[in-house]
Design a protein around this nucleic acid. Structure first.
Lengths: 144, 144
DNA sequence: GCTTGCCTTGGAGTGCGCTCGAAGCTTTAG
DNA sequence: CTAAAGCTTCGAGCGCACTCCAAGGCAAGC
């Protein structure tokens, strides 16, 4: 007989996390306790899934588990903690954007290096040179 | 008497990694062996620093140490491995860009949530409501 | 000569985020 | 009735990337 709610297997499939991770998140209180059916099995409600999706999103943007736990604690204390939660999210957003820009810069420099490699290849075309500019076996790495 | 090259302390400062990390990277061959002075102390050359900066860049964009090690092995084998190195870098670039876009999407959704919180706050202005829509103590989390 | 400080190595320890294993209970299929 | 599949908890184990510690060498200042 099908009971209300999704099994852990279904929930895991829906939110894209493993069953182990779902149990783990519940254990460490990243999500509120999930209800059980008559035999003690978890039954996920729509709201449970929304929680999980939200947590997964925060994780995907690199928020540490400890910070998410803080957020969840606040959420469980009720609506009067909304300002603090807002602050947390806002701080996270800024941190992610900062790192985002940093990665962009690094990536740009790496692309420059790729360009240099490309030019090296073009120049060396069919030459099969083992020798490098400066005498014996330069490491030849820092091209850029 | 000052000898040629920088000490590990200076090198660490210059490239923004810890001394421990510099030794660690050398141990696991993320960088070619660094020369020593008469008393066995490391002396970093300009080229050593360039290596380190490059490795740091790859790390900063999330390339796993194992992959960097592969790259370095290729580089040490000489110029004929340039095509393979290029391929590695190119693959990495694509992976980073993909993840970059994913994070941007997640961030966007989180911002939507922030917006919803903002609206909640505005609506609740000075109301001090402990009650939430649906009966007893909704977790109130999945606002978005 | 001795202390202080910086360096060396090898190996152990840490923090994070899962991931797995063992032992046991319930439900379903044959 | 039995076997298989799926769930439970608790606790241990793992992979990654460092980070720290102990024991000892070297060099400069007093």
């Amino acid at each position: 007989m099908t009971v209300a709610g999704w099994t852990i297997r279904e929930a895991a499939g829906k939110v894209g996390l493993s069953q182990d991770t779902l149990r783990y998140y519940e254990r460490i209180k990243l999500v509120p306790p999930v209800g059980r059916d008559s035999s003690g099995y978890r039954r996920y409600t729509e709201e449970d899934l929304e929680w999980l999706v939200f947590v997964a999103r925060l994780r995907a943007t690199g928020m540490p588990i400890a910070d998410i736990a803080t957020f969840v604690k606040l959420a469980l204390r009720g609506n009067e903690t909304v300002p603090q939660r807002l602050e947390l999210l806002e701080a996270h957003r800024q941190a992610v954007e900062a790192q985002w820009r940093e990665v962009r810069n690094h990536l740009h420099l790496i692309q420059t290096k790729i360009g240099n490699y490309r030019r090296m290849m073009a120049a060396t075309e069919g030459l099969d040179t083992g020798a490098v500019r400066e005498g014996q076996a330069s490491t030849s790495a820092p091209v850029s």
